[in-house]
Simulated assay, not measured.
Amino acid sequence: MKNTIKALAIVTLAVFTTLSFTTIEGNKKEIKTDKSEVVWKGYKVTGSHEGTIAIQSGSLTFEEDKLTGGEFIIDMTTINSTDLEGEYKGKLDGHLKSDDFFGVTNHPTASLIFKDVVSSGKNAYTVSGDLTIKGKTNPVTFTISIYGNKATASLKVDRTKYDVKYGSASFFDGLKDKAIYDEFDLVADLEF
């Protein structure tokens, strides 16, 4: 009897100690890529262009009902303009995929890893993370809102930090009305 009580006490102590030092990972919710969308918009002196790009994979991590993390892989080969048709659409899509812009042959994916998530209001968060495009990683800060099983995020990206300098007045003189602004917008509507 003493040995049984002693054995139970040792097992209980071992379980308690193990659980005390085990980090419980949050609840990871996979993004439904077929029901989620990322829209981009780039600006130039004479106007703008916009389109979509597909999420290859992604997830958001929660502890209880609070967002604590996330990570995404973007399929750069799917970059697509939606404001043009025909020959002009084909030319723009091809140019965006070329080495002048995102070089998708050598860099078929981009990634975003959440590093810090801070609540900024009801259902709203400020996220600091690492964005990698063309093999270059830079910190970004953006907002994300969560409503049920949906989320919306928006961020501005300075393309020149990722070696996407084509048409940038920051690097080339005399572009006049051919200049393309350095920042572009990304808006993600996510479902998980």
Rank of each mutant, 00 (worst) to 15 (best):
I10E: 15
Y43A: 13
S120N: 09
G70L: 01
E63T: 12
S145L: 11
K97P: 08
K44H: 14
A54M: 04
N123S: 11
D185S: 05
T17L: 15
A7I: 12
H107L: 01
I146C: 09
K176T: 15
D185L: 03
V157I: 12
N80P: 08
G148D: 13
S111M: 00
D83R: 00
I73D: 13
F62L: 11
I73P: 09
G94K: 09
K178N: 15
Y125I: 03
S168C: 05
D158H: 01
V45D: 13
D182T: 09
K44S: 15
G69S: 11
K122G: 11
D173H: 00
N80L: 08
D130F: 05
N3I: 14
D116A: 10
A110F: 03
F171C: 01
D99V: 01
G70E: 07
L67S: 11
V38F: 01
F62T: 15
V11N: 04
L8C: 15
Y181S: 08
D116Q: 13
I180V: 15
I113D: 15
K176D: 15
S128A: 11
D100C: 11
H49C: 11
D75W: 00
F16Y: 10
E50Q: 07
E37C: 04
K29H: 10
G69L: 08
S145M: 11
M76T: 13
F114I: 05
G174Q: 01
A110Q: 08
T132S: 09
A169Q: 14
S154M: 10
A151C: 06
T18W: 13
Q56F: 02
G26Y: 04
T4N: 07
I180K: 07
V38G: 02
N149S: 09
D182Q: 06
F184E: 12
G174A: 03
N3D: 13
T105Q: 08
Y147G: 14
M1F: 09
A151N: 08
S59Q: 07
Y162N: 12
K2C: 06
V11H: 04
D185E: 11
G26I: 12
V140L: 09
D116M: 04
Y162W: 10
F142D: 14
Y88W: 13
Y125R: 00
G121P: 00
I113A: 14
K134Y: 06
I146G: 12
T17I: 13
L84W: 02
S98H: 05
T23D: 07
S98Y: 06
A169Y: 07
E63L: 02
T77K: 06
Y181N: 10
S59E: 10
T126K: 10
S20P: 03
I5M: 07
F192C: 06
V38Y: 00
N80A: 04
F171S: 02
F171Y: 04
S120L: 07
N123E: 12
K91T: 15
V38R: 00
T52M: 03
S111E: 03
L60S: 05
Y125E: 03
G69M: 07
E85N: 02
T17E: 07
D177W: 04
V164L: 09
S111Y: 00
N80T: 13
S20G: 11
E85S: 08
D100I: 12
N3F: 13
D34P: 03
K89A: 15
F184Y: 08
E183K: 07
E50M: 03
S119Y: 09
D177G: 05
L60D: 08
T23R: 09
I5G: 01
T78W: 06
N27Q: 10
K28A: 15
S170Y: 03
